[in-house]
């Protein structure tokens, strides 16, 4: 089976936020509004963490895009009492909203804070309704949601490949973030397939994973930012 993963080159990332916005549009992630945002209830499937090093004027800025890391040894699935979140055969950590009871154990267990909770019913403005993606369900209030590596695209890609009687290729399945990145900082593919670009990049001497010592085995690799 495939092992879908991502390599993010921090040298190339400019922190433009294209991945964040394309993710919101693709996955119908609601904007929570001012009050909820001030209470720390923002919903982000993809977030850009910005680090500042040094003192003004010699500041070095590093932008770190953070999706769900789809860990191989996910701590979130082990604490879920209702099997709403699980590691599937494609190596994706699924989240089934209809099954979720909103206990938020998984949010507490995730060391990367990759999950968000629907504190209120998603309220989309009237003009926004027409732009919602019909391939992705709208979540109800009281459930946890997270980046799915756009797995609805995988379902469609598999369907097309099966119909055309061929194997799934690298370009068939790309999540919204990697597709929209203007600097090609995000590369996506099958980590087990030597023909995919990610397999070369993940073995680079710049490659590292966040909080590797926890043993979560994330499937998102970063390429260290180097000063030129």
């Amino acid at each position: 089976m495939a092992k879908w993963g991502m390599v993010i080159d921090l040298n190339k990332c400019t922190g433009c936020g294209s991945c964040v916005n394309s993710c919101r549009m693709e996955n119908n992630v609601p904007n929570v509004g001012d009050k909820a945002a001030q209470a720390g209830r923002t919903m982000d499937w993809m977030q850009i963490i910005t680090e500042y090093h040094g003192n003004y004027p010699n500041i070095r800025i590093v932008h770190i895009p953070r999706p769900c890391f789809q860990c191989n040894n996910p701590p979130c699935t082990k604490v879920c009492p209702v099997h709403a979140t699980f590691l599937n055969e494609d190596g994706l950590v699924g989240q089934i909203y209809q099954r979720c009871i909103g206990c938020r154990f998984c949010m507490a267990a995730c060391p990367y804070s990759a999950k968000s909770f629907n504190y209120s019913k998603p309220d989309f403005p009237e003009a926004y309704e027409k732009t919602l993606n019909p391939d992705v369900t709208r979540r109800m209030n009281g459930v946890v949601e997270k980046c799915s590596f756009c797995h609805h695209r995988l379902a469609i890609a598999k369907d097309v490949a099966r119909f055309e009687e061929r194997d799934l290729e690298e370009e068939d399945y790309q999540p919204a973030c990697s597709e929209s990145c203007p600097t090609n900082a995000i590369t996506f593919g099958d980590l087990d397939n030597p023909e995919h670009r990610v397999t070369h990049l993940m073995h680079s001497n710049r490659a590292f994973r966040l909080e590797e010592e926890l043993g979560t085995e994330p499937k998102v690799y970063y390429l260290k930012k180097e000063d030129k």
Partner: peptide, 10 residues
Amino acid sequence: ISNDCLTCHV
């Protein structure tokens, strides 16, 4: 056929 939740649920 796979009965994995992600096969049908999006």
